[in-house]
Design a binder for these strands. Structure first.
Length: 293
DNA sequence: TACCAGGAGAGCG
DNA sequence: CGCTCTCATGGT
């Protein structure tokens, strides 16, 4: 396989592509026969995987594949991450059940916009809403012959020009003004997302939470999935449920306290642990979870 | 019909 | 601080 072209294969151990693309950290991947089709940083790409390899096909020849290898985090060593975790039964059970699940490194703006829209919605609805947003306000990207049309994620500059009513028409409800305010802040240069990864975690979180509609949970999603803060720990209803069930005897605990517990308990890669707990609790019935733990 | 969905924010005791 | 209510919409 030539290094420059439409196609590329990478050898990689313990990479569960299906879990990684469908576990709720990214919302634009669509199953396609034995693979997945999506748009990453404005490029159409089809991914497939087998035992020990991941393959990509693009619409346009690629000279430099770093936009994709960085997105897929191919160089990350999962064993080192799990070795940094505590050896408690609930986490080991999630680790065993979700073998090969990876965190992606996504575009921060797409991440911020997507999770603003995720508030209080089911994942399939989030996917559908984001698909409508891209089809209406993204730019058409080249696709291979015979493939259905695809769009880039709309830029903050583009969304900032829209009236709120245009966004509400897509079914965003109360999230529409939040997305609009975020688009304007980024387009204005008032919020520099590219700078966030160089700030201390607490500062970066504080900065994001100045936006209307961005609280601790959405801020942590952007920091973990888009800025590379491995310690960020988004607490949503599912993770809260999993933590209460496994570490607090089923008692109800405020989200802030759960995040503090997680930070102290799971350590420098707490965010990775969060995704395993999230995926596990969402894909496995409670009785079966307790059995394997 | 009632309830829930990868929340946030205001109001209240 | 911790609880409750509201925000808008679509799905079981």
């Amino acid at each position: 396989m030539s290094r420059a072209g439409h196609c590329r294969v990478w050898p990689v151990q313990d990479y569960d592509l299906a879990s990684t693309l469908s576990c709720g950290q990214a919302f634009r991947w669509v199953p396609d026969r034995d693979g997945w089709v999506g748009v990453v940083r404005g490029r159409w790409v089809r991914l497939s995987a087998g035992n020990g390899w991941v393959q990509a096909r693009t619409a346009v020849p690629q000279r430099d594949w770093r936009w994709l290898t960085d997105y897929l985090q191919l160089e990350v060593n999962l064993a080192e991450i799990s070795a940094s975790w505590p050896q408690d039964p609930p986490l080991r059970a999630a680790w065993a059940a979700c073998r090969g699940l990876r965190l992606l490194r996504q575009d921060p703006w797409e991440c911020l916009a997507s999770f603003l829209l995720s508030a209080c919605k089911a994942i399939p609805q989030i996917q559908a809403l984001i698909a409508r947003l891209c089809a209406c306000y993204g730019e058409a990207v080249p696709v291979p012959p015979g493939q259905s049309a695809a769009w880039s994620f709309p830029s903050p500059e583009r969304l900032a020009t829209l009236p709120e009513s245009s966004l509400r028409r897509l079914g965003m409800g109360f999230r529409a003004p939040h997305l609009l305010a975020a688009a304007r802040a980024v387009a204005d240069g008032q919020l520099d997302l590219a700078r966030l990864p160089r700030l201390p975690l607490a500062k970066a979180r504080e900065r994001l939470m100045q936006l209307p509609g961005v609280g601790p949970k959405i801020a942590d999603c952007v920091l973990l999935f888009g800025c590379g803060f491995q310690r960020a720990f988004p607490v949503d209803v599912w993770v809260a449920r999993a933590l209460r069930e496994s570490y607090f005897g089923g008692r109800r605990v405020p989200a802030g306290r759960l995040r503090e517990f997680a930070d102290a308990h799971f350590g420098p890669h707490a965010g990775y642990a969060q995704q395993y707990l999230f995926h596990h609790v969402r894909t496995m019935p409670a009785a079966q979870r307790r059995l394997s733990a």
